[in-house]
Design a protein around this nucleic acid. Structure first.
Lengths: 245, 245
DNA sequence: CGATCCGTTGAGGTGCGTCAACGGGAGTGG
DNA sequence: CCACTCCCGTTGACGCACCTCAACGGATCG
Protein backbone atom coordinates (compact mmCIF):
# COMPACT_ATOMS: atom_id res chain seq x y z
CA UNK A 1 0.00 0.00 0.00
CA UNK A 2 1.56 3.28 -1.05
CA UNK A 3 1.19 6.50 0.88
CA UNK A 4 -1.17 7.64 -1.82
CA UNK A 5 -3.48 4.70 -1.38
CA UNK A 6 -3.57 5.49 2.29
CA UNK A 7 -4.51 9.07 1.53
CA UNK A 8 -7.23 7.90 -0.79
CA UNK A 9 -8.67 5.65 1.84
CA UNK A 10 -8.66 8.36 4.46
CA UNK A 11 -10.45 10.79 2.18
CA UNK A 12 -13.32 8.39 1.75
CA UNK A 13 -14.02 8.45 5.41
CA UNK A 14 -13.82 12.20 5.76
CA UNK A 15 -16.76 14.55 5.89
CA UNK A 16 -15.39 16.35 2.85
CA UNK A 17 -15.66 13.24 0.79
CA UNK A 18 -18.06 14.65 -1.76
CA UNK A 19 -15.83 17.62 -2.51
CA UNK A 20 -12.59 17.60 -0.54
CA UNK A 21 -11.12 20.34 -2.75
CA UNK A 22 -13.95 22.65 -1.83
CA UNK A 23 -12.73 22.57 1.76
CA UNK A 24 -9.06 22.92 0.87
CA UNK A 25 -7.45 25.64 2.96
CA UNK A 26 -4.89 26.57 0.31
CA UNK A 27 -7.21 26.49 -2.65
CA UNK A 28 -7.24 30.25 -3.03
CA UNK A 29 -3.47 30.25 -3.45
CA UNK A 30 -3.13 27.70 -6.13
CA UNK A 31 -4.27 26.46 -9.50
CA UNK A 32 -7.58 25.44 -8.01
CA UNK A 33 -8.53 29.02 -7.26
CA UNK A 34 -11.42 30.53 -9.18
CA UNK A 35 -12.76 27.20 -10.38
CA UNK A 36 -16.50 26.62 -10.44
CA UNK A 37 -17.92 24.05 -8.04
CA UNK A 38 -18.47 21.69 -10.94
CA UNK A 39 -14.87 22.06 -12.10
CA UNK A 40 -13.65 21.62 -8.57
CA UNK A 41 -15.57 18.38 -8.27
CA UNK A 42 -13.98 17.10 -11.43
CA UNK A 43 -10.59 17.98 -10.08
CA UNK A 44 -11.32 16.31 -6.77
CA UNK A 45 -12.20 13.16 -8.68
CA UNK A 46 -8.69 12.74 -9.97
CA UNK A 47 -6.88 13.96 -6.83
CA UNK A 48 -5.31 11.76 -4.22
CA UNK A 49 -4.13 13.08 -0.91
CA UNK A 50 -1.00 11.87 0.81
CA UNK A 51 0.97 12.58 3.92
CA UNK A 52 4.73 12.19 3.50
CA UNK A 53 7.41 12.11 6.18
CA UNK A 54 10.30 14.58 6.24
CA UNK A 55 13.30 13.69 4.11
CA UNK A 56 11.48 11.53 1.59
CA UNK A 57 12.05 11.67 -2.16
CA UNK A 58 8.92 12.39 -4.20
CA UNK A 59 10.65 11.78 -7.51
CA UNK A 60 14.13 11.96 -8.96
CA UNK A 61 15.66 13.97 -11.77
CA UNK A 62 15.08 12.07 -14.99
CA UNK A 63 12.12 10.03 -13.75
CA UNK A 64 9.13 9.74 -16.04
CA UNK A 65 6.93 12.68 -15.16
CA UNK A 66 3.49 11.14 -14.80
CA UNK A 67 2.27 13.02 -11.75
CA UNK A 68 1.62 16.61 -10.71
CA UNK A 69 1.62 17.63 -7.07
CA UNK A 70 0.12 20.39 -5.04
CA UNK A 71 1.57 21.15 -1.63
CA UNK A 72 -1.10 21.63 1.02
CA UNK A 73 1.12 21.62 4.09
CA UNK A 74 4.82 21.41 4.83
CA UNK A 75 7.84 22.32 2.73
CA UNK A 76 9.34 20.58 -0.31
CA UNK A 77 12.71 21.26 -1.91
CA UNK A 78 13.67 20.84 -5.56
CA UNK A 79 17.27 20.34 -6.54
CA UNK A 80 19.70 19.36 -9.26
CA UNK A 81 23.03 17.60 -8.84
CA UNK A 82 26.36 17.66 -10.64
CA UNK A 83 28.18 14.36 -11.22
CA UNK A 84 30.55 15.00 -8.30
CA UNK A 85 27.72 15.68 -5.87
CA UNK A 86 27.54 19.46 -5.87
CA UNK A 87 23.92 20.38 -5.34
CA UNK A 88 21.80 23.36 -6.25
CA UNK A 89 18.38 23.72 -4.67
CA UNK A 90 16.24 25.54 -7.22
CA UNK A 91 13.26 26.16 -5.02
CA UNK A 92 11.40 25.57 -1.80
CA UNK A 93 7.72 24.81 -2.24
CA UNK A 94 5.10 25.65 0.36
CA UNK A 95 1.35 25.30 0.73
CA UNK A 96 -0.31 26.45 -2.46
CA UNK A 97 2.67 25.74 -4.71
CA UNK A 98 2.55 23.05 -7.35
CA UNK A 99 5.30 20.92 -8.79
CA UNK A 100 5.80 18.41 -11.51
CA UNK A 101 6.37 20.50 -14.63
CA UNK A 102 8.36 18.43 -17.04
CA UNK A 103 10.41 18.69 -20.20
CA UNK A 104 10.10 15.77 -22.62
CA UNK A 105 7.95 13.93 -20.11
CA UNK A 106 10.75 13.70 -17.58
CA UNK A 107 11.28 15.64 -14.38
CA UNK A 108 14.22 18.01 -14.63
CA UNK A 109 14.95 17.93 -10.92
CA UNK A 110 14.61 15.85 -7.77
CA UNK A 111 11.91 16.68 -5.23
CA UNK A 112 12.31 15.89 -1.53
CA UNK A 113 10.26 16.78 1.50
CA UNK A 114 11.97 19.12 3.99
CA UNK A 115 9.31 18.66 6.66
CA UNK A 116 6.39 16.29 6.89
CA UNK A 117 4.07 17.29 4.07
CA UNK A 118 0.55 16.89 2.82
CA UNK A 119 0.29 16.72 -0.93
CA UNK A 120 -2.38 16.42 -3.56
CA UNK A 121 -1.39 14.14 -6.35
CA UNK A 122 -2.82 14.34 -9.87
CA UNK A 123 -2.14 11.97 -12.77
CA UNK A 124 -0.66 14.12 -15.53
CA UNK A 125 -2.81 12.68 -18.32
CA UNK A 126 -6.01 13.37 -16.48
CA UNK A 127 -4.93 16.90 -15.64
CA UNK A 128 -4.15 17.58 -19.26
CA UNK A 129 -7.56 16.31 -20.25
CA UNK A 130 -9.13 18.66 -17.72
CA UNK A 131 -7.05 21.56 -18.99
CA UNK A 132 -8.55 21.11 -22.43
CA UNK A 133 -11.99 21.26 -20.90
CA UNK A 134 -11.36 24.17 -18.54
CA UNK A 135 -9.36 26.93 -20.23
CA UNK A 136 -9.59 28.95 -17.03
CA UNK A 137 -7.46 26.35 -15.31
CA UNK A 138 -4.98 26.40 -18.16
CA UNK A 139 -4.71 30.16 -17.85
CA UNK A 140 -4.18 29.92 -14.14
CA UNK A 141 -1.45 27.34 -14.58
CA UNK A 142 0.27 29.49 -17.17
CA UNK A 143 0.12 32.49 -14.90
CA UNK A 144 1.63 30.49 -12.05
CA UNK A 145 4.43 29.31 -14.35
CA UNK A 146 5.07 32.93 -15.33
CA UNK A 147 5.39 33.88 -11.69
CA UNK A 148 7.82 31.04 -11.12
CA UNK A 149 9.85 32.21 -14.08
CA UNK A 150 10.07 35.69 -12.60
CA UNK A 151 11.13 34.21 -9.27
CA UNK A 152 13.77 32.16 -11.07
CA UNK A 153 15.18 35.33 -12.60
CA UNK A 154 15.34 36.97 -9.20
CA UNK A 155 17.21 33.94 -7.97
CA UNK A 156 19.69 34.21 -10.85
CA UNK A 157 20.40 37.80 -9.85
CA UNK A 158 20.93 36.60 -6.30
CA UNK A 159 23.21 33.72 -7.25
CA UNK A 160 25.23 35.61 -9.82
CA UNK A 161 25.66 39.01 -8.26
CA UNK A 162 24.85 39.20 -4.56
CA UNK A 163 27.21 38.83 -1.60
CA UNK A 164 26.68 36.24 1.11
CA UNK A 165 25.04 38.80 3.39
CA UNK A 166 22.73 40.04 0.66
CA UNK A 167 21.81 36.47 -0.18
CA UNK A 168 20.88 35.63 3.39
CA UNK A 169 18.83 38.82 3.80
CA UNK A 170 17.03 38.23 0.48
CA UNK A 171 16.30 34.69 1.56
CA UNK A 172 14.77 35.70 4.88
CA UNK A 173 12.67 38.35 3.18
CA UNK A 174 11.42 35.87 0.62
CA UNK A 175 10.33 33.50 3.38
CA UNK A 176 8.66 36.39 5.15
CA UNK A 177 6.78 37.53 2.06
CA UNK A 178 5.62 34.05 1.22
CA UNK A 179 4.41 33.50 4.77
CA UNK A 180 2.44 36.73 4.54
CA UNK A 181 0.89 35.65 1.25
CA UNK A 182 -0.29 32.46 2.91
CA UNK A 183 -1.92 34.48 5.66
CA UNK A 184 0.71 34.02 8.34
CA UNK A 185 2.47 36.83 10.10
CA UNK A 186 5.54 38.10 8.28
CA UNK A 187 7.72 38.41 11.37
CA UNK A 188 9.24 36.39 12.96
CA UNK A 189 10.01 34.14 10.01
CA UNK A 190 9.71 30.38 10.31
CA UNK A 191 12.77 28.71 8.74
CA UNK A 192 12.15 24.97 8.50
CA UNK A 193 15.19 24.04 6.41
CA UNK A 194 18.70 23.14 7.53
CA UNK A 195 21.83 25.26 7.07
CA UNK A 196 22.91 22.82 4.39
CA UNK A 197 19.69 23.36 2.46
CA UNK A 198 19.96 27.12 2.79
CA UNK A 199 23.57 26.94 1.58
CA UNK A 200 22.67 24.86 -1.45
CA UNK A 201 19.84 27.23 -2.25
CA UNK A 202 22.00 30.35 -2.06
CA UNK A 203 25.17 28.98 -3.63
CA UNK A 204 27.13 29.09 -0.38
CA UNK A 205 28.56 26.63 2.15
CA UNK A 206 26.98 25.77 5.50
CA UNK A 207 29.89 27.48 7.26
CA UNK A 208 29.32 30.74 5.42
CA UNK A 209 25.58 30.59 6.10
CA UNK A 210 26.25 30.02 9.77
CA UNK A 211 28.83 32.79 9.98
CA UNK A 212 26.57 35.25 8.20
CA UNK A 213 23.70 34.50 10.57
CA UNK A 214 26.06 35.12 13.45
CA UNK A 215 27.16 38.43 11.94
CA UNK A 216 23.58 39.59 11.47
CA UNK A 217 22.75 38.47 14.98
CA UNK A 218 25.73 40.33 16.41
CA UNK A 219 24.81 43.43 14.42
CA UNK A 220 21.35 43.29 15.97
CA UNK A 221 19.63 42.91 12.60
CA UNK A 222 18.04 39.58 13.45
CA UNK A 223 17.53 37.42 16.50
CA UNK A 224 17.04 33.67 16.60
CA UNK A 225 14.04 32.41 18.49
CA UNK A 226 13.14 28.92 19.52
CA UNK A 227 11.38 26.69 17.03
CA UNK A 228 13.47 27.69 14.03
CA UNK A 229 12.05 31.19 14.00
CA UNK A 230 14.03 34.30 13.13
CA UNK A 231 12.95 37.75 14.21
CA UNK A 232 13.83 40.57 11.85
CA UNK A 233 14.54 43.68 13.87
CA UNK A 234 14.27 46.27 11.12
CA UNK A 235 12.29 45.24 8.06
CA UNK A 236 13.15 48.31 6.00
CA UNK A 237 16.82 48.00 6.82
CA UNK A 238 16.60 44.37 5.82
CA UNK A 239 15.25 45.27 2.41
CA UNK A 240 18.12 47.68 1.88
CA UNK A 241 20.64 45.08 2.95
CA UNK A 242 19.18 42.54 0.51
CA UNK A 243 20.10 44.77 -2.41
CA UNK A 244 23.35 46.21 -1.17
CA UNK A 245 22.12 49.77 -0.75
CA UNK B 1 7.17 57.23 -36.74
CA UNK B 2 8.26 54.38 -34.54
CA UNK B 3 10.30 51.44 -35.75
CA UNK B 4 7.16 49.40 -35.56
CA UNK B 5 5.22 51.68 -37.87
CA UNK B 6 8.07 51.31 -40.30
CA UNK B 7 7.85 47.56 -40.07
CA UNK B 8 4.14 47.67 -40.66
CA UNK B 9 4.60 49.79 -43.72
CA UNK B 10 7.21 47.50 -45.16
CA UNK B 11 5.06 44.44 -44.67
CA UNK B 12 2.37 45.96 -46.79
CA UNK B 13 4.62 46.10 -49.76
CA UNK B 14 5.96 42.59 -49.36
CA UNK B 15 4.79 39.59 -51.30
CA UNK B 16 3.90 37.86 -48.06
CA UNK B 17 1.41 40.57 -47.23
CA UNK B 18 -1.59 38.30 -47.11
CA UNK B 19 0.03 35.92 -44.64
CA UNK B 20 3.50 36.99 -43.61
CA UNK B 21 3.55 34.48 -40.76
CA UNK B 22 3.02 31.63 -43.18
CA UNK B 23 6.37 32.45 -44.72
CA UNK B 24 8.14 32.98 -41.42
CA UNK B 25 11.40 31.04 -41.33
CA UNK B 26 11.34 30.52 -37.58
CA UNK B 27 7.70 29.62 -37.26
CA UNK B 28 8.38 25.98 -36.58
CA UNK B 29 10.45 26.93 -33.55
CA UNK B 30 8.06 29.15 -31.79
CA UNK B 31 4.56 29.65 -30.50
CA UNK B 32 3.28 29.91 -34.04
CA UNK B 33 4.18 26.32 -34.82
CA UNK B 34 1.34 23.88 -35.42
CA UNK B 35 -1.24 26.58 -35.96
CA UNK B 36 -3.82 26.13 -38.70
CA UNK B 37 -3.65 28.49 -41.69
CA UNK B 38 -6.74 30.27 -40.39
CA UNK B 39 -5.18 30.74 -36.94
CA UNK B 40 -1.96 31.88 -38.50
CA UNK B 41 -3.84 34.51 -40.48
CA UNK B 42 -5.48 35.81 -37.32
CA UNK B 43 -2.10 36.00 -35.67
CA UNK B 44 -0.59 37.80 -38.65
CA UNK B 45 -3.37 40.35 -38.37
CA UNK B 46 -2.18 41.52 -35.00
CA UNK B 47 1.55 41.21 -35.66
CA UNK B 48 3.86 44.04 -36.53
CA UNK B 49 7.36 43.47 -37.76
CA UNK B 50 10.28 45.66 -36.79
CA UNK B 51 13.97 45.87 -37.40
CA UNK B 52 15.96 47.17 -34.41
CA UNK B 53 19.57 48.26 -34.29
CA UNK B 54 22.09 46.68 -31.93
CA UNK B 55 22.23 48.07 -28.41
CA UNK B 56 18.66 49.38 -28.29
CA UNK B 57 16.33 48.96 -25.32
CA UNK B 58 13.07 47.19 -26.15
CA UNK B 59 11.60 47.85 -22.72
CA UNK B 60 12.79 48.44 -19.19
CA UNK B 61 12.25 46.59 -15.93
CA UNK B 62 9.05 47.87 -14.40
CA UNK B 63 7.52 49.19 -17.63
CA UNK B 64 3.88 48.41 -18.30
CA UNK B 65 3.90 45.10 -20.15
CA UNK B 66 1.59 45.72 -23.07
CA UNK B 67 3.54 43.94 -25.79
CA UNK B 68 4.83 40.46 -26.54
CA UNK B 69 7.74 39.91 -28.89
CA UNK B 70 9.00 37.11 -31.02
CA UNK B 71 12.61 37.16 -32.18
CA UNK B 72 12.96 36.32 -35.88
CA UNK B 73 16.61 37.27 -36.34
CA UNK B 74 19.44 38.55 -34.17
CA UNK B 75 20.06 38.23 -30.44
CA UNK B 76 18.34 39.93 -27.50
CA UNK B 77 19.50 39.98 -23.90
CA UNK B 78 17.33 40.21 -20.78
CA UNK B 79 18.78 41.53 -17.54
CA UNK B 80 18.05 42.79 -14.06
CA UNK B 81 20.00 45.42 -12.13
CA UNK B 82 20.83 46.02 -8.49
CA UNK B 83 20.69 49.60 -7.19
CA UNK B 84 24.49 49.94 -7.34
CA UNK B 85 24.65 48.86 -10.97
CA UNK B 86 25.53 45.19 -10.64
CA UNK B 87 23.88 43.40 -13.52
CA UNK B 88 22.64 39.88 -14.11
CA UNK B 89 21.72 38.81 -17.62
CA UNK B 90 19.00 36.21 -17.22
CA UNK B 91 18.88 35.08 -20.81
CA UNK B 92 19.88 35.53 -24.41
CA UNK B 93 17.03 35.22 -26.88
CA UNK B 94 17.48 34.04 -30.43
CA UNK B 95 15.28 33.42 -33.45
CA UNK B 96 12.19 31.50 -32.37
CA UNK B 97 12.28 32.71 -28.77
CA UNK B 98 9.56 34.94 -27.38
CA UNK B 99 9.69 37.53 -24.65
CA UNK B 100 7.34 39.72 -22.76
CA UNK B 101 5.99 37.52 -19.99
CA UNK B 102 4.96 39.76 -17.16
CA UNK B 103 4.05 39.70 -13.50
CA UNK B 104 1.31 42.11 -12.44
CA UNK B 105 1.29 43.60 -15.92
CA UNK B 106 4.85 44.87 -15.61
CA UNK B 107 8.02 43.52 -17.15
CA UNK B 108 10.32 42.00 -14.56
CA UNK B 109 13.48 42.70 -16.57
CA UNK B 110 15.00 44.98 -19.17
CA UNK B 111 15.35 43.77 -22.77
CA UNK B 112 18.08 45.06 -25.06
CA UNK B 113 19.24 44.02 -28.50
CA UNK B 114 22.73 42.52 -28.66
CA UNK B 115 22.87 42.58 -32.45
CA UNK B 116 20.56 44.11 -35.02
CA UNK B 117 17.30 42.20 -34.68
CA UNK B 118 14.06 41.50 -36.44
CA UNK B 119 11.13 41.16 -34.11
CA UNK B 120 7.43 40.43 -34.32
CA UNK B 121 5.43 42.54 -31.96
CA UNK B 122 2.01 41.55 -30.60
CA UNK B 123 -0.29 43.67 -28.43
CA UNK B 124 -0.80 41.68 -25.25
CA UNK B 125 -4.55 42.18 -25.09
CA UNK B 126 -5.06 40.88 -28.58
CA UNK B 127 -2.84 37.89 -27.95
CA UNK B 128 -4.81 37.02 -24.84
CA UNK B 129 -8.02 37.21 -26.82
CA UNK B 130 -6.55 34.85 -29.38
CA UNK B 131 -5.39 32.46 -26.66
CA UNK B 132 -8.96 32.10 -25.48
CA UNK B 133 -9.98 31.23 -29.00
CA UNK B 134 -7.11 28.88 -29.79
CA UNK B 135 -6.34 26.58 -26.88
CA UNK B 136 -3.63 24.96 -28.96
CA UNK B 137 -1.72 28.21 -28.88
CA UNK B 138 -2.20 28.48 -25.14
CA UNK B 139 -0.80 24.98 -24.72
CA UNK B 140 2.15 25.80 -26.89
CA UNK B 141 2.89 28.94 -24.91
CA UNK B 142 2.67 27.04 -21.65
CA UNK B 143 5.01 24.39 -22.95
CA UNK B 144 7.52 27.05 -23.99
CA UNK B 145 7.30 28.67 -20.56
CA UNK B 146 7.95 25.25 -19.00
CA UNK B 147 11.05 24.85 -21.11
CA UNK B 148 12.25 28.27 -20.07
CA UNK B 149 11.70 27.33 -16.46
CA UNK B 150 13.83 24.23 -16.90
CA UNK B 151 16.53 26.34 -18.56
CA UNK B 152 16.36 28.78 -15.66
CA UNK B 153 16.97 25.94 -13.23
CA UNK B 154 19.98 24.80 -15.21
CA UNK B 155 21.27 28.35 -15.05
CA UNK B 156 20.80 28.39 -11.26
CA UNK B 157 22.94 25.27 -11.00
CA UNK B 158 25.54 26.98 -13.16
CA UNK B 159 25.53 30.23 -11.19
CA UNK B 160 25.45 28.65 -7.76
CA UNK B 161 27.74 25.68 -8.11
CA UNK B 162 29.98 25.73 -11.17
CA UNK B 163 33.54 27.04 -11.50
CA UNK B 164 34.50 29.70 -14.02
CA UNK B 165 35.80 27.11 -16.45
CA UNK B 166 32.68 24.97 -16.15
CA UNK B 167 30.53 28.05 -16.67
CA UNK B 168 32.32 29.03 -19.87
CA UNK B 169 32.16 25.49 -21.25
CA UNK B 170 28.47 25.18 -20.38
CA UNK B 171 27.84 28.51 -22.06
CA UNK B 172 29.55 27.51 -25.30
CA UNK B 173 27.68 24.23 -25.36
CA UNK B 174 24.37 25.98 -24.82
CA UNK B 175 25.08 28.27 -27.77
CA UNK B 176 26.07 25.26 -29.83
CA UNK B 177 22.93 23.31 -28.97
CA UNK B 178 20.66 26.24 -29.66
CA UNK B 179 22.33 26.85 -33.00
CA UNK B 180 21.76 23.21 -33.89
CA UNK B 181 18.11 23.45 -32.91
CA UNK B 182 17.72 26.36 -35.28
CA UNK B 183 19.23 24.33 -38.07
CA UNK B 184 22.73 25.79 -38.05
CA UNK B 185 25.85 23.76 -37.60
CA UNK B 186 26.82 23.17 -34.01
CA UNK B 187 30.53 23.81 -34.49
CA UNK B 188 32.11 26.34 -34.70
CA UNK B 189 29.86 28.35 -32.41
CA UNK B 190 28.90 31.91 -33.26
CA UNK B 191 29.24 34.11 -30.17
CA UNK B 192 27.69 37.50 -30.89
CA UNK B 193 27.84 38.97 -27.39
CA UNK B 194 30.65 40.90 -25.70
CA UNK B 195 32.85 39.65 -22.89
CA UNK B 196 30.95 41.94 -20.55
CA UNK B 197 27.64 40.35 -21.53
CA UNK B 198 29.05 36.86 -21.11
CA UNK B 199 30.41 37.84 -17.70
CA UNK B 200 27.08 39.24 -16.54
CA UNK B 201 25.33 36.13 -17.78
CA UNK B 202 27.68 33.74 -15.97
CA UNK B 203 28.17 35.72 -12.76
CA UNK B 204 31.82 36.51 -13.52
CA UNK B 205 33.91 39.55 -14.47
CA UNK B 206 35.10 40.34 -17.99
CA UNK B 207 38.67 39.67 -16.91
CA UNK B 208 37.86 36.19 -15.68
CA UNK B 209 35.95 35.42 -18.87
CA UNK B 210 38.88 36.59 -20.96
CA UNK B 211 41.41 34.66 -18.90
CA UNK B 212 39.35 31.48 -19.03
CA UNK B 213 39.04 31.70 -22.80
CA UNK B 214 42.80 32.09 -22.98
CA UNK B 215 43.28 29.03 -20.77
CA UNK B 216 40.98 26.90 -22.89
CA UNK B 217 42.69 28.16 -26.02
CA UNK B 218 46.13 27.34 -24.61
CA UNK B 219 44.92 23.90 -23.55
CA UNK B 220 43.81 23.30 -27.13
CA UNK B 221 40.18 22.81 -26.14
CA UNK B 222 38.89 25.68 -28.26
CA UNK B 223 40.22 27.97 -30.94
CA UNK B 224 38.98 31.44 -31.80
CA UNK B 225 38.11 32.08 -35.41
CA UNK B 226 37.36 35.31 -37.17
CA UNK B 227 33.84 36.67 -37.05
CA UNK B 228 33.26 35.90 -33.36
CA UNK B 229 33.27 32.18 -33.94
CA UNK B 230 34.72 29.63 -31.58
CA UNK B 231 35.74 26.17 -32.69
CA UNK B 232 35.32 23.43 -30.12
CA UNK B 233 38.08 20.87 -30.60
CA UNK B 234 36.58 17.99 -28.62
CA UNK B 235 32.82 18.10 -28.12
CA UNK B 236 32.67 15.14 -25.74
CA UNK B 237 35.52 16.51 -23.66
CA UNK B 238 33.68 19.81 -23.59
CA UNK B 239 30.58 18.19 -22.14
CA UNK B 240 32.65 16.58 -19.41
CA UNK B 241 34.33 19.87 -18.62
CA UNK B 242 30.98 21.62 -18.34
CA UNK B 243 30.00 19.38 -15.44
CA UNK B 244 33.34 19.01 -13.72
CA UNK B 245 33.82 15.34 -14.48
C1' DC C 1 44.48 61.34 -35.49
C1' DG C 2 42.62 61.81 -30.93
C1' DA C 3 38.80 59.51 -28.46
C1' DT C 4 36.42 55.62 -27.18
C1' DC C 5 35.44 50.95 -26.64
C1' DC C 6 36.76 46.22 -26.25
C1' DG C 7 39.65 42.44 -25.14
C1' DT C 8 43.78 40.91 -22.93
C1' DT C 9 47.24 40.50 -19.41
C1' DG C 10 49.56 41.37 -14.92
C1' DA C 11 49.88 42.27 -9.84
C1' DG C 12 47.78 42.15 -5.72
C1' DG C 13 43.78 41.69 -2.55
C1' DT C 14 39.71 39.42 -0.48
C1' DG C 15 35.35 37.03 0.23
C1' DC C 16 34.22 32.85 0.62
C1' DG C 17 35.60 27.88 0.47
C1' DT C 18 38.18 24.10 2.78
C1' DC C 19 39.56 21.61 6.57
C1' DA C 20 39.27 20.79 11.24
C1' DA C 21 37.57 20.83 15.91
C1' DC C 22 33.92 21.13 19.22
C1' DG C 23 29.37 21.34 21.67
C1' DG C 24 24.55 20.26 22.02
C1' DG C 25 20.40 17.67 20.98
C1' DA C 26 18.17 13.47 19.41
C1' DG C 27 17.97 8.86 18.94
C1' DT C 28 19.57 4.12 20.47
C1' DG C 29 20.82 0.49 23.14
C1' DG C 30 22.50 -1.46 27.25
C1' DC D 1 19.18 6.24 33.53
C1' DC D 2 23.40 6.65 31.38
C1' DA D 3 26.88 5.93 27.62
C1' DC D 4 27.40 6.07 22.81
C1' DT D 5 26.73 7.57 18.27
C1' DC D 6 25.17 10.55 14.84
C1' DC D 7 23.83 14.77 12.99
C1' DC D 8 23.67 19.63 12.99
C1' DG D 9 25.27 24.18 13.86
C1' DT D 10 29.09 27.00 15.14
C1' DT D 11 33.73 28.75 15.20
C1' DG D 12 38.69 29.15 13.94
C1' DA D 13 42.79 28.91 10.81
C1' DC D 14 44.18 28.92 6.38
C1' DG D 15 44.08 28.81 1.23
C1' DC D 16 42.56 29.90 -3.22
C1' DA D 17 39.51 31.12 -7.09
C1' DC D 18 38.03 34.91 -8.50
C1' DC D 19 37.70 40.06 -8.06
C1' DT D 20 39.89 44.68 -8.26
C1' DC D 21 42.79 47.89 -10.11
C1' DA D 22 45.79 49.10 -13.65
C1' DA D 23 48.08 49.22 -18.05
C1' DC D 24 48.17 48.40 -22.91
C1' DG D 25 47.14 47.25 -27.90
C1' DG D 26 43.93 46.99 -31.62
C1' DA D 27 39.67 48.28 -33.88
C1' DT D 28 36.27 51.66 -34.93
C1' DC D 29 34.72 56.25 -35.65
C1' DG D 30 34.09 61.04 -36.02
Amino acid sequence: MTPFDMGRARDKGATTEMNPCGACPVRILTVCAALEPEELRRLADIAQNARIEAGQTLFGEGDAADTLYNVTSGTVKLFKLLPDGRRQITGFLMPGDFLGLAVNDHYAYTAETVTTCSLCRFPRRKVEALLDEFPKMQRRLFSMASNELAAAQDQMLLLGRKTAREKICSFLLMLSQRAARRGHKENPVYVPMSRADIADYLGLTTETVSRTFTQLKTAGVISLQEGNKIQIADMDGMYDMAEGS
